[in-house]
């Protein structure tokens, strides 16, 4: 069973989370539900610093032994930091998807885009309803 979804962040339908750092940036990753679906994560392809992405555009790639999955930007922005630790320890995403397993930090273009995402309660419902 996956970890409860923390209430301090927003969630996308593609199972990314985004925490508002309250300084115009967000930190993003994938939910514990998502890592549990992917299981054994063995590789994370991180974007280049400075890359600009639109909301819901492909941002990173997570590979398990068997599968390759695109990770999308929960909001539009510029990549200002990536979790370098994942290069040698991709399993951090499995072990701590909401913490040590964060993937990218983005400088937001339009903070109101966060309002288009689900809060924890809505994401819980979403997983309950049709999250697969």
């Amino acid at each position: 069973m996956y970890q409860p979804n923390p209430e301090d962040r927003k969630y996308s339908k593609d199972h990314e989370w985004a925490v508002d750092n309250k300084d115009g940036t967000v930190t993003m990753g994938i939910s514990d539900y998502a890592q549990e679906q992917l299981t054994d994560i063995v590789f994370v392809e991180l974007p280049d610093i400075g890359r600009q992405v639109a909301q819901f555009e492909q941002l990173a790639v997570v590979e398990s032994v068997k599968s390759v999955s695109d990770i999308y930007a929960p909001v539009s922005g510029t990549v200002i930091d990536v979790n370098k630790a994942l290069e040698d320890q991709p399993e951090l995403v499995n072990q701590d998807a909401f913490g040590e397993g964060w993937i990218v930090k983005l400088q937001m273009v339009d903070p109101s885009e966060l309002d288009t995402l689900m809060d924890a309660a809505a994401y819980d419902d979403y997983l309950e309803r049709d999250g697969d």
Binding site: T39, D40, V42, S64, V65, K66
Partner: peptide, 9 residues
Amino acid sequence: PVQYTNIIE
């Protein structure tokens, strides 16, 4: 069945 727990295990 592709996996029961995870592939590496």
